[in-house]
Design a protein around this nucleic acid. Structure first.
Lengths: 178, 178
DNA sequence: TTCCGCATGTAATGGGTTACATGATTAG
DNA sequence: CTAATCATGTAACCCATTACATGCGGAA
């Protein structure tokens, strides 16, 4: 969260409220966070002198700006190698799908396929309705969107492959039982 | 975590230590957890009567068994629709890659591509060296592995596409500056 | 008898989620 | 005047990570 906010402030200064709005339309897709968390983290960033409240406006509005120490910290963080521990309730459920009836398992996968397909459509819609911009920030924004699209497409294909495999093993079982 | 343990116990009873071993070789790939967490959760599951210590052996070993309440809870949970909030430090970094120099950005993606490729190789090796088994549990285990392979392959392709796009925009910039 | 593996836990800390809580401005 | 939006925060709780802590049993 820390670096999500620092990154948004590096692109453009603003208040917590501003950041919240920008956050929701951009980073929330790759890094969900709540309003509580955002304000809390802003306080900590300010305490560490990575950002500073440059101005206080109406309603106690604080305009935050990134400091040079903040910029340095951000750049260091961005180029650190990524080690994302992978954790998925979907795969946890799938792994345990042998514990429910074959019919329920099939339903579960089918439901997931539909969900993934609608997510794919949603992202493709965004890609289609966003016009290109020359900035580097915009470039990397489309690149992250592309990741999402490939991901969703992969999930749809996988789910369909699983459904086919379930069908195959069902007809095999029938043959044996007969 | 709760249901990961319940699921393992549904497949086969055992001690915390047993579960830890089984966990490491199976579910840890989709749901990382530590030994601390495992023992803590076992205590809570026992307090909720989802599991019970059927026997106490040497060294204070407790043999846990799933109860019928536990089985019911597990089945209910497995068939609940999946809503995985997606959170990725990779994509957070990529989104902010405009904040570092183009050369650093390219390096970062190239490094990631290599990482993803080695992960893909690792998973394909597992798939190649695991012989098939007829059980339903084994079927869903290969299905989760297949997801991992498709995922890693997708990441490799995506990273390569990004590298190509970076190259294209670099040569475009050269042309303009000239 | 000594070491490895079995076997179980506790404590501190940090991040995230949910819910609660309050109040000022401005547009209509 | 009144409702929507701007704007900021606090508190309780849960989950996960890291580090620490202890001790028995069996095999060589």
């Amino acid at each position: 969260m820390r670096y999500a906010l620092l990154g948004l402030l590096a692109q453009q200064a603003g208040s917590g409220y501003d950041l919240l709005k920008r956050f929701e339309t951009t980073l929330a897709n790759v890094w969900p966070a709540t309003q509580s968390q955002l304000y809390g983290e802003l306080g900590k960033l300010a305490a560490d002198d990575f950002i500073s409240a440059s101005d206080i406006g109406p309603r106690g509005r604080k305009e935050y700006v990134i400091t040079s120490a903040g910029r340095d910290a951000l750049r260091d963080w961005i180029t650190e190698p990524t080690t994302d521990p992978f954790r998925s309730t979907l795969l946890l459920r799938v792994f345990l799908l042998g514990e429910v009836s074959p019919a329920e398992a099939e339903d579960y996968i089918a439901e997931f396929a539909a969900l993934a397909a609608s997510e794919l459509a949603r992202l493709q819609h965004i890609a289609a309705t966003t016009e290109a911009d020359e900035s580097r920030a915009a470039f990397y924004s489309t690149v992250t969107l592309d990741y999402g699209i490939r991901y969703a497409a992969m999930e749809v294909e996988w789910a369909q492959a699983v459904l086919k495999a379930i069908d195959r093993s069902r007809s095999r079982e029938k043959r044996v039982t007969r």
